[in-house]
């Protein structure tokens, strides 16, 4: 193939008749190849494949949203449990707020069953 003629043909400087036989053959192969590339470039999947792919994407999204909902429920339950169940903090505070009666009863009891310190 005459490379220079081939380039000049593609640039429109030469006509097909001015090319030698070998270059004419190569131009033909080039045109066929470009046709194939053009078809591939404008690729559109078949309806079956498109449905299968879209179904996979939807399944992934559904799984993600299910995990998200489950996690939200667990976190909500965790916070509800923490706020509803009694913790040791109020008990400690209560021990510091012994009523006059409680202190009197306890001291009287220790005094009754003990004999001093």
């Amino acid at each position: 193939m005459n490379d220079e003629d081939f380039q000049r043909f593609l640039d429109g400087e030469l006509t097909k008749e001015e090319l030698d036989e070998k270059t004419k053959q190569d131009v033909k192969i080039y045109n066929s190849m470009m046709q194939v590339i053009k078809v591939r470039y404008h690729y559109k999947p078949s309806p079956v494949l498109e449905k299968r792919v879209m179904s996979k994407i939807h399944k992934g999204r559904e799984l993600f949203s299910e995990i998200l909902v489950a996690a939200s429920v667990v976190i909500a339950l965790f916070f509800i449990t923490l706020n509803l169940l009694p913790t040791k903090i109020p008990a400690t505070a209560r021990s510091q707020q012994a009523s006059v009666s409680e202190v009197f009863d306890y001291l009287s009891l220790v005094k009754l069953v003990g004999d001093g310190f």
Partner: peptide, 17 residues
């Protein structure tokens, strides 16, 4: 038993009450 720690400290210094 609920009891103020301060009274506990004070009673540790006494022999009788």
């Amino acid at each position: 038993i609920s009891f103020p720690s301060e009274i506990k400290e004070i009673l540790q210094t006494v022999s009788w009450y």
